[in-house]
Design a binder for these strands. Sequence first.
DNA 1: TTGTAGGCGTTATCAT
DNA 2: ATGATAACGCCTACAA
Lengths: 338, 338
Amino acid sequence: MDTITIKDIARALNLSTSTVSRALRDSHEIKPETKRLVTEYAERLDYRPNPIALSLKENRSRVIGVIVPQIANNFFSQAINGIEAVAYSRGYHVIIFQSHESYEREQLTINQAVARKADGLLISLSSNTSDVAYLKSLQDKKLPIVLFDRVSKDLDGPCVTADNFGGAFAATEQLIQAGRRRIAHLTLPSYISITQERLSGYRSALEKHGIAYDESLVRYAGFGQDAVEPIIDDLLEQSPDAFFVASDRLAIGCLSALRKLGIAIPQSIALIGFTNITVADLLAPSMSTVVQPASEMGQIAAEQLINLIEGKQHLVKAETIILPTRMIVRESSAHQPG
Amino acid sequence: MDTITIKDIARALNLSTSTVSRALRDSHEIKPETKRLVTEYAERLDYRPNPIALSLKENRSRVIGVIVPQIANNFFSQAINGIEAVAYSRGYHVIIFQSHESYEREQLTINQAVARKADGLLISLSSNTSDVAYLKSLQDKKLPIVLFDRVSKDLDGPCVTADNFGGAFAATEQLIQAGRRRIAHLTLPSYISITQERLSGYRSALEKHGIAYDESLVRYAGFGQDAVEPIIDDLLEQSPDAFFVASDRLAIGCLSALRKLGIAIPQSIALIGFTNITVADLLAPSMSTVVQPASEMGQIAAEQLINLIEGKQHLVKAETIILPTRMIVRESSAHQPG
DNA sequence: TTGTAGGCGTTATCAT
DNA sequence: ATGATAACGCCTACAA
């Protein structure tokens, strides 16, 4: 891939590189005639300034590093969608890194992003990350960082999350109002913020309705490929009359397990996190669904980060931004309790 | 983000930058003592070579540009997964671009990737791309390009695809063997290669079993948000006795539409493209599924590209690599014809 | 209005 | 064994 540079143009037109550079940047101190000559020639040769040279000079890359647990996940791929839309519109490129839910790999990939001179980082923490000292040290070195979705209260600086508390509260209350009392909660690993917020919303809803919190109804499921079936089997020994499930994958596993066992559970499943409504409709028409604003979250996080990068601190909302979730209550769910 | 450079080290240790550079690269012509001094100091200050400066010097970015129609799509996000695994292991980074199924945006993003000095491009064509002259001109400029999944026969060079013909053939034959004769085919836009290959497999299977090809049983659906329901309604007027559907999204739309109409269609749906088997099981237990090797496709495409970039032409498989698909035949599908 | 020179961080070449 | 210098492509302060 042989490229044409400012030098080539200068040589061809018998000008100095600085004149060409200025002409291309439309400087006022260049004679219109010369400008025309240069721009026309550049156009004809399809000249593109070398962004790498620029980066070196300006000491910035115009690249945003995004670190997510996994790409092949509806929520994150939609969030990335939102991030890209904003980033590109503001002249940044996006490099995506996966932590694969591992603290070690998260460190490594963040290191990579830093080494690659990303201008800022957008991070959703892995489920095995409890120590954010490393991120703190990067912040101290003035690297702009915005956390989204899976955040940490141990880290200062802007965060963007969904209203996990509110969403979980609403979903749980929905089940209670349908007459359920022993609502099992199948959720993600306990480290991550969203798990804690959702658990908290679940407990608050129980409390509001005078239902005692029963720890034996709560199960944490890892990510890997660990099957959901045994967990459901185990939960069933506590004779729950409903399930509040904390992710798409878990919900599908839960439905699958229950179907295998021949257990019909009309109106007794609620879910937070589903992003494909048609699938949800087909899978379980009576299941209430709390939808997270994935793409919007990405957009807002990206905006915050870019404002930070560009020093527009005043445009950065202090600390945590909480985005509303949207609950979809299924018809049948309201009508046929029992 | 203040960074430490080779210069800082040189100054601190009273050495020249060249000595430091050589020491860090473990050159034999540096005294062990000096080496130790330098590496220790570098370690302590957490020195990282600036990849941008290196890129400028070596005239390459170690970045691979990936252009896909959309990220938020199971198939592509899994393919990207495979691409990243290979790319990172070989020292490349990946920048992802979306064409959003638009020819114009595809051109723009490819331009971006080129301007950003990507060392090579991995492309899955948008559904509106029929003219690949632009890509050809890039190839002529010696830019390594590998197409995957949605390829073009108008472009020379390596391609990686799934065995769409074979998969479609098998799926169609499966329906025929279950006693179906009027098999509708709901598929993607007609431009893209996978549509043509699948149509061809479908037709071959019909032909083999002496069933006349009936154009009125075939429908092309765009991507956008165009509802599948009206298409199904329309198709039903041709009184099909089975459906062979060409993507996850279309399959879900198809199932949803049929359910709304109260039409039960045991053993009469086959699908190519599904990536989440559990969901498929739950949605339609009798549906046969042809699974595409998404991640593997990404891996192989990335390998090919990197070999091209690094001049290992002899390691690049000539022209098209076709990966086998995997068909999952559901129990019920085989037993209860009719 | 245009040209010259220096620097961004690194490495390769050519001294010493 | 180490240092000085030039070069990658671009921009800009300073000169002319």
